[in-house]
Amino acid sequence: MKSAVIVFPGSNCDRDAHDAIARVTGEAPAMVWHQETELPAGTEFLMVPGGFSYGDYLRCGAMASRSNIMPAIIAHATSGAPVLGVCNGFQILTESGLLPGSLMRNAGLSFVCEKAPLSVANGNTRFTSRYDSESELIIPIAHHDGNYFADDETLDRIEGDGQVVFRYGNNPNGSARDIAGIVNAKGNVLGMMPHPERAVDAKHGGTDGLALFESLLGSA
């Protein structure tokens, strides 16, 4: 599976994303600088990594979501190809309008960096087919602005449509309805605050993120 990882100024999980994808797919992803205007030909899976693009100035992900590469990312997502945004990548995907809602400052105002217990709320997406529905995972989180917000109507809609994919077991940031990750209506764009790429090797302290990348292999 041909993959690509987008690199913004201030991305800091791009290497982790690269290594996780290479490990699972057996093929190193292309690293695509944000000033590019096209993805490498044949790209199937696209990952928008975590970090602090543009120093989180204005709003987290706001500037990155208007960068030169963004129209290509939107076109890729619109074509139905899989796109994963983790942490700052999730913020960038909401800012770009590819995913509903917004990530706000954590309710407790503190940066949270811990292993987060998660449940799989929808095991039937192309990102979660290798997980058992309702299974409990431990995936690391590290963010200051992960407090998922959307109006009640949107929350009801995405819950009803199975777009809520991961929930926190112990809501660390005030997210509405314990939401840790969502997909778009088509199910091909996933945004999540927890870092599955940091849980793919026993040396990471856990491998609960592996099945997410493995699920993609079977679906692309």
Partner: peptide, 9 residues
Amino acid sequence: QKLLANPVI
């Protein structure tokens, strides 16, 4: 509308 404010919030 395009950048300075996020209409969601």
